[in-house]
Amino acid sequence: MSLKIVANLCTGCSACEPECPNDAISELKNIFVIDPAKCTECEGDFDDPQCLSVCPIDDCILPLETEAAA
């Protein structure tokens, strides 16, 4: 259970990074990535996934499953 950042949409603005309750987000070559091992989709911490709520780019952050299924 994890979200994923779509690499070619991410602007590297870093807004998501400090919002993550699990420190799952880190910078990788000017964009940001989510560590699926750490991401809980914010369950237990917040009502909404924090990274998704703050990200300015539509569809930049998606569930990992959607990606895998596609």
Binding site: T11, G12, C13, S14, A15, E17, P18, V54, P56, I57
Partner: peptide
Amino acid sequence: PACNIQCNYCNRK
């Protein structure tokens, strides 16, 4: 570079 609001005159890309 992070922002906490969205303005209609700003495209953050």
